[in-house]
């Protein structure tokens, strides 16, 4: 469904992605993990058209989309849930959700918008309770739910999730990741998720890529990666004692 081939992205003269290649098959949940500054967010922003790659190919649904503007990618069904949520803080929960459907045609909205809204209220009942409240007054977990809900209003076929667990309590993280897993099961939504919470990411994702300083340094099935001693030491906090000895 999505394929990156030696994608390079620069911030000015600084190379942030040093040619990364990865792929996500339809209906798959794939994670990108790695330390701060590895280029995880840069990778997502390059895919979603926020940043333009310097070179390399990005193929979505068989079409080369490298450098395409975000609005046309949203039209194609590729929607990003950004780092820090980027909600419209002064606007109500309802208005935020409605703006998620911004690119959908008016004919489509007339017939299915109400259903989609109900569906999101079903997934996140708290959003229905708070629909008239300003998005800025929500708790961190509710804001993340709203960010996901807003993206779902675009009827995405593929979601790009950037650090959905950031700043959230473990229980809320669990809930959010359950929703992601359910989306894949029920709607066949393909997901590419960037996470620093490696443990949570490897639980929900089938495969993962490990990014370090703008390169993919490791990839494989989550089950195998979570057994890998290096991953355990660097990201899962295991084997620390062994190192000291």
């Amino acid at each position: 469904m999505l394929k990156l081939q030696s994608v390079m992205t620069y911030y000015g003269r600084i190379m942030a992605l040093r040619g990364i290649s990865l792929h996500v098959d339809p209906g798959e949940i794939v994670a990108i993990v790695g330390p701060n500054g590895a280029g995880k967010t840069t990778a997502l922003n390059t895919i979603s058209g926020v940043l333009a790659p310097k070179s390399g190919r990005i193929v979505f649904d068989g079409k080369d989309v490298a450098g395409k503007p975000t609005d046309s990618l949203v039209d194609m069904g590729l929607v990003q849930v950004p780092e820090g949520r980027q909600l419209f803080a002064g606007m109500s929960v309802y208005e935020n959700l409605m703006l998620g459907a911004y690119r959908r045609s008016s004919a489509d909205k007339k017939t299915r918008l109400r259903d989609d809204l109900d569906r999101i209220y079903q997934i996140f009942p708290i959003l229905k309770e708070r629909q008239k409240q300003s998005a800025g007054t929500l708790s961190g977990g509710e804001q993340q739910m709203l960010a996901i809900g807003r993206a779902l209003m675009a009827r995405p076929r593929m979601l790009l999730l950037d650090e959905p667990s950031m700043g959230l309590a473990p229980l809320v993280v669990k809930e959010i990741f359950k929703v992601i897993a359910d989306l894949r099961k029920e709607r066949k939504t393909t997901v590419l998720v960037v996470e620093q919470n490696v443990k949570a990411a490897l639980t929900v994702a089938k495969r993962a890529y490990v990014l370090e300083t703008g390169r993919v340094v490791m990839e494989g099935a989550s089950s195998e990666l979570s057994k890998n001693p290096e991953i355990q030491r660097a990201y899962l906090g295991k084997g620390y004692k062994h190192m000291v000895e």
Partner: peptide, 18 residues
Amino acid sequence: RAMRACALNPTGARLVGI
């Protein structure tokens, strides 16, 4: 609403396709 969204959060606005 889209204009308000742009004023409140240009990044968020861009990502919903505005």
